[in-house]
C-alpha cells in the first residue's frame, strides 16, 4: 500500500499549524477516510465534523489542497498524492478546533429572510412547471462551501452587509415560489447586499449538489432588483399597472 503525507491543520481559536501525518492509503479512499485513519492510528484528538459520508449531510466541508470541498466526496485518485496533501478547515468561518469551524453566523443570517408567506385564501394547487425552478434550490444541503468560497465573505469578511450565496439561493426559492406573496427585494438590495456579488461563479463551482447558484438564483434575483430599483422604464409600467399588480389581495397565487 502506498504511503501519502497529509498536512492537516491542528489548532483552535488561538492559532494553529499544519502537522504532517503519513498514512497508508488504499484504492477507493476519500479524504475523510484518511482523516478517520489518522484519528484511529495517530491522532485520536483530531477534531472533524462528519455524519453521512455520502455527500448529503454537508458536515465535512474543508479545504483540500486549497480547494473547498466535502472531504467525503473527494477521492484520493482525483488529487496529486505524490506531494503532501494539505487539509485545512474552511477559511471563512472561525475555527473551533482542527477541522471544525463555527458556522452559526449562517443561521443568524437565515433569520433576516422573511419566511414563506402565502396569501390568506391561497388555492394550494400548484403545477409542476411552477415549482421546477424552486425544487433545484431545495437540493441545498447547507454545507456552506459556497459561503466559504465567496470572496466577499472570505477575503473581505463582509458579514454584516452581505448574506452570501447560500441565502441568496434560499431567498430565490421563496421569491420565485408561485404561492408566496412576500416581497424581499428591499432586503436583497440593502441588508442582503446582492450588489456585492460580482458573478464570479465560485459558489457554483464548489456546490456539491451542482445547483447552478449564479445562473439560476443570483442573476435572476439581480434582474428582479434591477426591475425594482434600476430600470426607469419598468418603474413607469409598474406605476401604470400598479392596481393590477397585487394579486395576493384577491386571495390567489402571486404572479409577475
Amino acid at each position: 500500500m502506498p504511503s501519502v503525507t497529509f498536512r492537516v491543520f491542528r489548532g483552535d481559536q488561538t492559532g494553529g499549524e499544519l502537522k504532517d501525518y503519513t498514512v497508508e492509503v488504499q484504492e477507493g479512499m476519500v479524504v475523510l477516510d484518511v482523516i478517520h485513519k489518522i484519528q484511529a492510528e495517530q491522532a485520536p484528538d483530531l477534531a472533524c465534523r462528519w455524519n453521512c459520508k455520502a455527500g448529503k449531510c454537508g458536515s465535512c466541508g474543508a479545504e483540500v489542497n486549497g480547494k473547498p470541498t466535502l472531504m467525503c466526496m473527494t477521492r484520493l485518485d482525483t488529487i496529486d498524492t505524490s506531494k503532501p496533501v494539505t487539509v485545512r478547515p474552511m477559511k471563512t468561518f472561525p475555527v473551533i478546533r482542527d477541522l471544525v469551524t463555527d458556522v452559526k453566523w449562517n443561521y443568524e443570517v437565515n433569520k433576516k429572510i422573511k419566511p414563506f408567506t402565502p396569501a390568506p385564501d391561497t388555492n394550494w394547487i400548484m403545477y409542476q412547471e411552477d415549482v421546477d425552478r424552486v425544487q433545484e434550490f431545495r437540493k441545498c444541503i447547507e454545507c456552506f462551501l459556497c459561503q466559504n468560497v465567496c470572496h466577499v465573505l472570505r477575503e473581505h469578511n463582509e458579514k454584516t452587509g452581505f448574506i452570501g450565496p447560500r441565502f441568496l439561493v434560499r431567498t430565490a426559492s421563496l421569491e420565485m415560489h408561485p404561492l408566496d406573496v412576500e416581497n424581499r427585494l428591499d432586503m436583497l438590495k440593502n441588508e442582503g447586499g446582492i450588489g456585492y456579488c460580482n458573478i464570479t461563479k465560485c459558489c457554483t463551482e464548489v456546490c456539491p449538489e451542482h445547483i447552478r447558484i449564479t445562473d439560476n438564483a443570483i442573476i435572476p434575483l439581480k434582474e428582479r432588483v434591477v426591475d425594482e430599483y434600476y430600470d426607469p422604464v419598468m418603474a413607469f409600467f409598474r406605476r401604470l399597472f400598479a392596481s393590477k399588480k397585487r394579486p395576493e389581495t384577491a386571495g390567489t397565487a402571486a404572479d409577475d
Binding site: G11, F93, P94, N157
Partner: peptide
C-alpha cells in the same frame, strides 16, 4: 460574536 477567522488558517 466574533466572525473573524482564526489566525493560522489564513
Amino acid at each position: 460574536m466574533s466572525t473573524k477567522p482564526v489566525t493560522g488558517t489564513e
